[in-house]
Amino acid sequence: MLTCQEVLDNLSCYLDGEGSEELRRELERHIARCARCFVVVDTTKQTLRIVADCEPFEVPLATSALLYDRLAHFFAGLL
C-alpha cells in the first residue's frame, strides 16, 4: 500500500490524469481507506476548480487602455 507521503508526492499526477493505470489504482485504494488523504485529494481538486472558475487577476480595464495607448503611440512613431 502507498504511504500518505507517496500519495502526496503523486497528487498532481492523479489530478492531471497522468501516471500509469496501476498508480491510479493504488492511489484510489489508499484514498478509499485513508480519510486524511481523501480530504486532501478531494479539496485540492476543488481548489483547482474554484480557482479556475473565478478567473483571478483579470486585467483591469484601465491597464488595457494604457497598453493600447502605448502601442498606438509606438505604431504612430513607425509611420
Binding site: R36, T43, Q46, I50, P56
Partner: peptide, 26 residues
C-alpha cells in the same frame, strides 16, 4: 504536509458572493 484536513462544505464557493470569492482566491 497538509495541516488543514477537515472536510469542506459541499460547493463551498457558493457560500460567498462572486466578488468576495475572487478576493479570497486572489
Amino acid at each position: 504536509r497538509p495541516s488543514r484536513v477537515e472536510e469542506w462544505y459541499a460547493n463551498p464557493e457558493r457560500r460567498y458572493a462572486t466578488a468576495e470569492l475572487k478576493r479570497i482566491v486572489e
